[in-house]
Design a protein around this nucleic acid. Structure first.
Lengths: 159, 159
DNA sequence: CCCCAAAGGTTGATGCGTCAACCAGAATAC
DNA sequence: GTATTCTGGTTGACGCATCAACCTTTGGGG
């Protein structure tokens, strides 16, 4: 079995491209609507949603990172930008001198509340309403299977 | 049916997040391997692959954009970066004074050939081998359904 | 106590993607 | 034949994501 055995056939190629296109267009549409409705991006929304549901509207960076499955620096950059816009504030952690806790501001709460309904409706309309129950199941299982495989094969890249 | 009817339930939320995580991790892993194996990114690869298969190893920007389903400026920026690295060259089009044609260079061909096998193997290993035939079908249909829905509901965003 | 490794975060550089504005050549209207 | 509009493409600014390097605090050993 030479290297050519791993080329993707026509069907696979098509599925792969459809997957990419679906993700990109979905992501674009959601971002545009979120931006229009509430003036925030999807990453903003994810952070704000996580904080809004947290015990005291605050989380330590570590926890937020765990929740969102983001890298350190990605979160740091995102929080910096959001802090500049007044959506969150950072303050030091008493127990651990290294740590920082991120807290959502009133402005942030206002934004995320304004966005939540419309965003969920959009996700439902564009994604879930397009899928049959069987497709939904397949999606769920497939997602889990791919993630599991990534965890096994590329442990470094999937912490 | 008020606004609260559109909130995502637990199952949907989980599927939605799994979908995002799958895409992000897959994309990350593929990019890392492509970068390591051939020193190019996934967008680089897409452009190079399209050009390598084109009639004279060249396409007009318009055609490339059609093929990849990218925006004008996205392609322009990408091509500029790739030209700086010597992977492609731009030259003027004789028939149409506005147009530009993009041609792959020998270096570009070398890179894309070096990358193709390993990349395809990676996609197969991480994606297709994780999916059952039924899941593959579901993925295919679901992708088409979502794209079609996007086309209907957000015509502006899905040209 | 001191050294050293690990953990929590930040920063800077660079590539990627979008948007809005722009420019030049081409088509079309009149 | 000139004015208008359309089309193909570029640019600049900005936000997003990764990587590598760095800094500080913590926690252990010696």
């Amino acid at each position: 079995m030479g290297g050519s055995g791993s080329r993707l056939d026509g069907r696979e190629y098509q599925v792969w491209r459809a997957f990419h296109r679906m993700h990109d267009q979905l992501s674009l549409a959601l971002n545009q609507h979120l931006q229009r409705d509430a003036g925030i991006s999807e990453p903003d929304f994810q952070v704000l949603a996580a904080l809004a549901e947290a015990p005291r509207q605050a989380l330590r960076s570590r926890e937020l990172r765990e929740e969102l499955q983001w890298e350190k620096s990605r979160l740091a950059h995102q929080i910096r930008r959001m802090e500049q816009r007044g959506l969150v504030v950072r303050d030091e952690c008493l127990e651990d001198g290294r740590a920082a806790t991120v807290r959502i501001t009133d402005a942030g709460l206002t934004s995320v509340r304004a966005a939540a309904q419309a965003h969920a409706a959009m996700v439902r309309e564009l994604f879930f309403d397009a899928l049959s129950p069987a497709q939904l199941d397949a999606f769920d299982e497939a997602g889990a299977a791919v993630i599991e495989r990534l965890r096994q094969r590329c442990p470094a890249e999937a912490p």
